[in-house]
Design a protein around this nucleic acid. Structure first.
Length: 284
DNA sequence: GTCCATGTTCTTTA
DNA sequence: CTAAAGAACATGGA
């Protein structure tokens, strides 16, 4: 579910509801979903209001009114939903937080009542995702590369100059550039006309420039479409993304290239399915 | 039963 | 040191 466009869409939709909301109670149904272990997350959240919701790479970072922070990573199948408290609790729901919303800030709630209660729920069947408590630590300790949308071409070139590895693998490396995943790497490489096996260090300056533009353009279009829903992904409203219908290579093996009709190829690279057009993405 | 899946991290191997 | 390959995590759909 979650590459940069999907995570950004979740953040945007979350803000509409729970930004500045106060958490009146919280239940952690699976304590091992919260890291580090031993953190009493409900105690940390109860009585706090949510001052900010931001995206860093594929992480959704919450800032509380105390200045403390935590982030949620959706892993492969995570969902972060804002629902009416009456909604039946789905299987694999790990966190439920009651949020008191000011009516002025949202359309939820009955007329005449100053507040409405909504529930923020984290659901993740495969549990590759989780909740990381950061507290007041200024820096989050895990090294993440720069944000793709603001990365300058020159900086990207510098980062790609070293690795003697396929460009596809390099772009999936979150310490090199943070936020791309399997879908958008394949899509960006198509948009840039680059073969996924091309070594990162072999790219010409012109190719890096084209790639830099392709990454940004692909991500922006995907964000505009609300991300891609292959299976589980929905935003905080429970709505699916629309960008999957515009994929040019991802999950399109053997289907005709939308540009040249050549059948899209699928190989396995770094253990991940990799899709490309053998005609449009030549190697040289 | 089999294979595959939008992610990350660790181990082994070269 | 670099990086590739494989496995691991856990669940569910085709």
């Amino acid at each position: 579910m979650p590459e940069l466009p999907e995570v950004q869409t979740v953040v945007t939709t979350l803000r509409q509801f729970v930004l500045n909301a106060r958490i009146t109670s919280a239940i952690l149904l699976r304590t091992d979903i919260c890291i580090p272990s031993g953190i009493d997350l409900p105690a940390k959240l109860t009585g706090r209001s949510i001052s900010a919701i931001d995206r860093r790479a594929k992480r959704i970072v919450f800032t509380l009114d105390t200045g403390e922070r935590f982030y949620i990573h959706l892993g492969m199948t995570g969902q972060l939903l804002v629902v009416d408290p009456q909604t039946p609790v789905a299987k694999h729901t790990h966190l439920i937080a009651d949020c008191r919303l000011r009516i002025a800030d949202s359309k939820a709630g009955a007329p005449g009542k100053p507040y409405a209660i909504a529930q923020l729920r984290f659901v993740d069947p495969r549990r590759f995702g989780g909740i990381w408590w950061l507290g007041e630590s200024a820096d989050d300790p895990n090294a993440l590369g720069p944000e793709p949308l603001t990365l300058r071409t020159a900086a990207l070139a510098k980062r790609l100059a070293r690795p003697r590895r396929p460009i596809k693998s390099a772009l999936l490396d979150q310490s090199l550039i943070a936020g791309l995943g399997n879908i958008y790497v394949d899509e960006a490489l198509f948009a840039a006309g680059l073969h996924p096996l091309t070594l990162a260090c072999d790219l010409s300056p012109a190719q890096v420039a084209k790639l830099s533009r392709a990454i940004k353009q692909t991500l922006r279009s995907a964000i505009q479409a609300g991300g891609s829903t292959l299976r589980d992904y929905v935003n905080a409203n429970g709505q699916r993304g629309q960008y999957q219908s515009r994929h040019r290579v991802y999950d399109r093996a053997n289907q005709p290239c939308r540009r040249c009709k050549t059948p899209i190829a699928r190989i396995v690279l770094g253990g991940r399915s990799t899709h490309f057009c053998p005609q449009c993405q030549n190697r040289d």
